[in-house]
Amino acid sequence: MFRFRLYWTFTKKAFLRSAVYRFDVWSRLGSNLIFLLMWGSIWTALYAGREEAGGVSFESMLTYIVVSQFLSGVNGAGTPLWEIQEKVRTGDISLELMRPFDVPLRYLFADFGSVAFYILTALLPLYTVMFIFMDLTLPSAWETWILFIVSAFIGFLIRYCIEMAFGLLSFFLVETGGIVDVFYFAMSLLSGSVIPLWFFPGWLEKMALYLPFQGIYYIPNAIFIGKISGTEILLSLGVQLFWAAASYLLLRFVWNHASQKIVVQGG
């Protein structure tokens, strides 16, 4: 039995908690903007006045970067990984094991709350203004908007599961620094968050298409700017759903082992 009300309470509490940490919202929004400016200027320089490159217009490319930064704001607004690792390190996590709820789900629902707060109070106003004042391509069909939101949501789930699973590696390895760095690098490159996959060399693009990361940034973004359409979209959503399921299983697997380890070795 899934106790929606219970998990929803975590969402509500996290939403309210975010309101207490308003400064956090501003500083996060600031760095989000800085990255947006940086990638915006890099791509402007790369296009060097050309109208299009790789079959994609400059306007679409700029839109891609803006949407990508928006998504990165969304994906970065949840419980930071170090907080969970800290709980693992101090043994506080074992107290959560004792509660009648599922720990990974509880953090996911709490993230919904903090992300919602961040979207409503910071991301949405800022990006709306940006779309009004900049020359960017907006989807004209309302279906595209819905597909984008669905795709971005699935992408969020994929990112959550994978990031949490990697974060929990600290249960098994004394030194996770290196692995986590490689993971974050892979995630930012192979997800297409800063360079769209179509600019990748053929082999790298193939590789990226076989990995789950593209589901986080590339697919929702490709839907938004109209790079893919019709059945292609449905196919991509299918791929995303597959990866969401797979990364959920990965998270479950890692979590079961991790919690087993805590109860045997003691927090």
Partner: peptide, 22 residues
């Protein structure tokens, strides 16, 4: 160590527990 949620006002921790334990 506490079992309450660090960031939340005390009363909200209680409200959370109310939901958790129905």
């Amino acid at each position: 160590r506490t079992q309450l949620w660090w960031d939340l006002p005390t009363i909200e921790s209680f409200e959370l527990l109310k939901e958790i334990y129905q």
